[in-house]
Amino acid sequence: MDKLKANYEVMLGLTAEMILDEALLKFRRAKIYAAINDALETGDRDRFQKLSEEWNALRR
């Protein structure tokens, strides 16, 4: 019974970690997206290029 409880706790921990990772990824994507739009609006080509590379790296 203790082994079953330990397995359950491990699985619960992994699930929580996956949810947190997904939330952080969504947050980061939203920040980069907004920054890309800002770079486009201000005409900052270098910043746009850097942020676009970050965006593409997150998609992999």
Rank of each mutant, 00 (worst) to 15 (best):
M1S: 13
D2L: 15
D2G: 12
D2R: 14
D2Q: 15
K3S: 11
K3F: 13
L4A: 12
L4I: 09
L4C: 06
K5I: 15
K5A: 14
K5R: 15
K5W: 11
A6Y: 06
A6E: 13
A6R: 09
A6W: 08
N7G: 10
N7L: 15
N7R: 13
N7Q: 15
Y8W: 09
Y8N: 08
Y8C: 04
E9A: 15
E9H: 13
E9R: 15
V10S: 10
V10D: 06
V10C: 04
M11S: 14
M11G: 13
M11P: 05
M11K: 15
L12F: 12
G13M: 13
G13N: 14
L14W: 09
T15G: 13
T15A: 15
T15R: 14
E17R: 12
E17M: 12
E17W: 07
E17N: 11
M18P: 02
M18T: 08
I19W: 03
I19R: 11
I19H: 07
L20M: 13
D21C: 05
E22W: 06
A23S: 10
L24S: 06
L24I: 13
L24E: 09
L25A: 07
L25T: 03
K26G: 05
K26M: 12
K26E: 10
K26A: 10
K26Y: 04
F27T: 15
R28M: 04
R29Y: 02
R29P: 00
R29K: 10
R29S: 02
A30P: 03
K31P: 00
K31M: 03
K31E: 06
K31N: 03
K31V: 04
I32C: 02
I32K: 01
I32V: 14
Y33W: 08
Y33H: 10
Y33R: 11
Y33Q: 11
A34H: 04
A34P: 02
A34V: 08
A34Q: 08
A34F: 03
A35C: 02
A35M: 03
I36E: 00
I36D: 01
N37A: 08
N37C: 07
N37I: 06
N37Y: 05
D38Q: 07
D38Y: 07
A39M: 01
L40W: 04
L40K: 12
L40N: 04
L40V: 09
L40H: 05
L40D: 05
L40R: 09
L40T: 06
E41A: 14
T42D: 01
T42R: 11
T42W: 03
G43Q: 00
G43K: 00
D46V: 06
D46C: 04
D46L: 06
R47L: 12
F48R: 05
F48V: 01
Q49V: 10
Q49K: 10
Q49E: 12
K50P: 07
K50C: 05
K50W: 08
K50Q: 09
L51A: 00
L51H: 00
L51M: 00
L51Q: 00
S52R: 08
S52I: 02
S52N: 09
E53V: 09
E53I: 10
E53K: 12
E53R: 09
E54I: 08
W55V: 00
W55N: 01
W55I: 00
N56S: 07
A57F: 03
A57Q: 11
A57W: 05
L58E: 02
L58P: 01
R59H: 13
R59A: 14
R59P: 03
R60M: 06
R60K: 09
R60S: 09
R60H: 07
R60V: 05
R60T: 04
